[in-house]
Design a protein around this nucleic acid. Structure first.
Lengths: 141, 141
DNA sequence: CCTCCTGTAAATTTTAATCTTACATCTAAT
DNA sequence: ATTAGATGTAAGATTAAAATTTACAGGAGG
């Protein structure tokens, strides 16, 4: 399973909210126009970020605001909010190796050991980048 | 785009070839049985690994042998053989942000900068694991 | 009480991955 | 040389995953 475009859309939304969330009412309709994605997808993404405590949404009347400092919003947190346990789904494993073959019998165990290290490395990589760096990048473009 | 199960199947095949490639004729049919994948997929994977110089295939009569030392066969090399530039396809980016919006106009550039670091980190992670470690792991199971 | 918004669910469409079928070609053994 | 058992690919069919669309129940605030 891959890291979907939802991650990119989420970052897009967070930049937008960080820039405009205090000044005007940021609705899913507005984010939909800016990202070029349909409003339901936006609402699902925003909903996931809300559950993670990253932002808050004004119910009923609409509008979105960030809920914690930029440096605490890491890419890891975003990805995990969008898809829990996304790391374990990163590299697909074939499901039907032959149990009669010495290799087939043990392949899952071998792969899991090796992949665990990759998951760890990717996790720290994603934790090392937060919306703070991304906003800095955006502002100095 | 994700790292597909082809990577796991490739590792499975390489373990099998490493164990049995010298003793018996390892055909796509045999690998197909061991992995539980159809022979055409196996042949495509083996073909990609061959182009990378990782193994060699005896044409006509069949049979596969490793072509270089285990420690030179890194996961990065395997993934790249299976799908060139797989890193740039790892995290999807939404294709239609609004060019009228300040965020939409610049999002691709911002994302590419941030994602480049992740690609680098993942690359070194994948380069740090080779078939040598995997075979050691397999043998000490 | 009316309008604009959110939160979800369900069905449809689109896209990507995988499997199947088919066949040309090659090698070694008989 | 003929044949049996392989590889290498191309195309089409099937399956599975993502994304979009449609629909609607509910809240907030003028």
């Amino acid at each position: 399973m891959h890291i979907s475009t939802k991650c990119s859309i989420a970052i897009h939304c967070l930049i937008f909210i960080s820039e405009y969330g205090e000044k005007r009412k940021v609705t899913s309709e507005l984010l939909s126009l800016s990202t070029g994605t349909n409003p339901v997808t936006i609402r699902n993404i925003i909903s996931a970020l809300k559950k993670e405590g990253i932002l808050s949404v004004k119910f009923g009347t609409g509008g979105t605001k960030l809920n914690c400092p930029l440096n605490e919003i890491t890419l890891y947190r975003i990805c995990n909010a969008l898809e829990p346990n996304f790391l374990t789904k990163l590299i697909g494993i074939h499901s039907m190796p032959s149990p009669l073959c010495p290799v087939g019998k043990n392949i899952h165990s071998v792969l899991n050991t090796s992949y665990a290290k990759i998951h760890e490395d990717l996790r720290s990589s994603l934790q090392s980048i937060s919306m703070k760096e991304i906003m800095d990048n955006y502002n100095h473009l």
